[in-house]
């Protein structure tokens, strides 16, 4: 177990804000390396408070959080950031340098890397994230999408194994959101552990491999998207809704397993209604 500790391990985690608001109560959670996990829930359900424990921004009031086996309570955020990168919702909150490449080099410089190593790293990240043509650009002159890529680049420059994204698609247009999700998928393909917070259920259905539903500071549901979205009544109680296509399939009577995307829906429809060898699976509309 100690040879391969989980990426994140929360045990009986309680968190109470200084103003007395209890944000988390008795959360138990294990995230293994390489997972792609989405946290959903109403505003105030505790999802942000929970993920802020993953890199030590918040420390447990009671219970413990272990990050790759290390207890977070006596570790600094600057240290834990090398293991868990956190990309904030608003990229502008993370940026303060005068050019894109300086911005990327900032973190490694603080870690005391040597000059050539930093340059190589910056080059590599610029190319990887498609920011190389903007290397001299002022961060604030970039488009929102590129600023967000830059915020990811800043997290990436510290070489973490886990990435936390707080509402990565909020405020983005369709293509902007698509592009950032592709980037996240790429990171996942490189064996990075991905944690996202979002309100966008189709996004969860399309990308995540595991969904954790938070409610009132506790984990209300935890499972694959198919498992979670196949319980619409329970989701409804938590003021959440499955993706529309899932709801549609459910309403049409396909209740045994959640349909997560349009291709699956099409496949099911063609199987149920167009091919001759199946019986009618549900009530006719």
């Amino acid at each position: 177990m100690d040879d391969h500790p989980p990426a994140i391990h929360c045990q009986q985690l309680d968190f109470v804000y200084p103003n007395g608001v209890q944000a988390l109560s008795s959360v138990n959670l294990v995230i293994e390396p390489g997972e792609y996990i989405a946290f959903v829930g109403q505003n105030g359900s505790g999802k942000t408070s929970l993920v802020k424990h993953f890199n030590g921004l918040l420390k447990p009031t009671r219970g413990s959080v272990r990050i790759f086996g290390e207890d977070s309570s006596d570790k600094k955020v600057s240290y834990l950031s090398r293991k868990v990168g956190y990309v904030f919702q608003n990229p502008d909150d993370m940026l303060f340098c005068t050019s894109v490449q300086e911005e990327i080099a900032y973190g490694p410089r603080l870690l005391g890397m040597d000059h050539t190593e930093i340059n190589q790293k910056v080059e590599h990240i610029l190319l990887e994230l498609g920011l190389d043509e903007h290397r001299e650009t002022h961060p604030f002159a970039l488009s929102l999408g590129d600023r967000q890529r830059l915020a990811v680049a800043c997290a990436l420059s510290l070489d973490p194994d886990v990435f936390v994204f707080d509402e990565p698609t909020t405020g983005q247009d369709y293509f902007g959101g698509k592009s950032i999700m592709n980037l996240i998928d790429q990171l996942h393909a490189k064996d990075k552990t991905i944690v996202i917070i979002t309100h966008d259920m189709p996004l969860v259905a399309e990308h995540a491999h595991r969904v954790v539903v938070m409610s009132g500071g506790q984990i209300a549901m935890d499972g694959s998207p198919a498992q979670v979205f196949s319980q619409p009544e329970k989701l409804h109680q938590l003021s959440l809704r499955s993706p529309q296509v899932t709801q549609l399939a459910y309403e049409m009577g396909f209740t045994e397993q959640a349909i997560l995307g349009v291709p699956e829906m099409v496949e099911w429809l063609s199987r149920s209604y167009l091919s001759a060898d199946t019986t009618n699976p549900g009530s006719q509309p």
């Binding site: 340098c97 005068t98 002022h138 961060p139 604030f140």
Partner: peptide
Amino acid sequence: GVLIGLKK
């Protein structure tokens, strides 16, 4: 930083 940022 602020002046360049404001302009950009």
